[in-house]
Design a protein around this nucleic acid. Sequence first.
DNA 1: CATATAAGTAAGTATTTGCTTGCAAATATA
DNA 2: TATATTTGCAAGCAAATACTTACTTATATG
Lengths: 196, 196
Amino acid sequence: MIRQSTEIRQEQIKSAVLDIIFTDGLKNLSTRNLAKRIGMSEGAIFRHFTSKQEIILAIIKDVKREFIGSLRMIANSKKTPESRLKSLLCATVKYLTDNKGITMLLFSEATSNNDTILKASLQEIFNTQKKLVSKIILDGIASGQWDENIPVENIAMLYMGIPVSLNIELVLSYGEFHADNFCSKMMILMLKLLNK
Amino acid sequence: MIRQSTEIRQEQIKSAVLDIIFTDGLKNLSTRNLAKRIGMSEGAIFRHFTSKQEIILAIIKDVKREFIGSLRMIANSKKTPESRLKSLLCATVKYLTDNKGITMLLFSEATSNNDTILKASLQEIFNTQKKLVSKIILDGIASGQWDENIPVENIAMLYMGIPVSLNIELVLSYGEFHADNFCSKMMILMLKLLNK
DNA sequence: CATATAAGTAAGTATTTGCTTGCAAATATA
DNA sequence: TATATTTGCAAGCAAATACTTACTTATATG
């Protein structure tokens, strides 16, 4: 195989990991399989990552930077709480449907290994989203638009159920679940909960 | 080891599977590990189940009978829709917190293997719950108590997010998540969605 | 009591796993 | 151009995997 820089190979490897997980399941994510899918030797993989575990951690790092990073931007923008909440929800739905392998990776790997680092990462990703939602809701209450008596924590928890159950639908329906206007529909429900 | 009937051994084995998954993760669910936890030889396991896969399927069968069965009873009872919905929700929360290993098993195993039979079983479990919720909501609308303009399907989807995100909390918090009145709190939110 | 069956074990099996080794060739740097 | 570093590969490693085999012992049944 033609020589490539570590940077390029690392991206290829990470991408192949997600591909394999989505098409064949986590159990078939062996370094042998991974090498075959890319078309390189198994040994070459270990030139670019020191271990299989390190590949997973690199992917999670990407998620934190790309996905959680963009959610933070949305939550902290200058728009109205309602607009921010909708953007947050729709961005989440889009990310999940566009990156189906990632969530399968996160959940399966975290629960498969009972790995402390992985679990902590997943917890951070989960909790950050919840905090961003809580913050937006509190802003909406402070601005007088939303009901001040609503239990913010509980609504944030209920909110988190949206991406999570979407995930399950995606996994179970072999990616065929088509979420037309899914985020708009869910947003209508959220507003009914939040309004006075 | 003292001799026991297949019936007793099968229960022991299934129970040990859930125990291992919850404490050590799915990856450590080997037949070797399983035998060690029960205190029997590895070969003996294969006296009572023909394969490891068959153990998983037996557990899923249990879930369908015990858990889904009881939810059906609740949904079809003579009580008011509100009372039935609350019972359904609380029974689900209780089952999940009491059987933490089961949901980890279902999701991890289904996504790990990309196994058709497992996925179909999980899908059935998921969809049955959604249908029961939809049915109760429709009853509540028919009785005039709940808003006839609510999007039943979407609310059922949002409802499913409750047990699912509870699951994630349980997995990530190493079982320490304490859900005091969790179902009551969520029920309050559901009612705000359903009421006129 | 005799015998068939069910439940147990220790020690295998072949296969798969993550990862290493020894060496070749491409590329960067002096 | 000479040398050092990086990227590649084929082959091999020990450990783990699900499951089998050959044989023993307990229990139920005629």
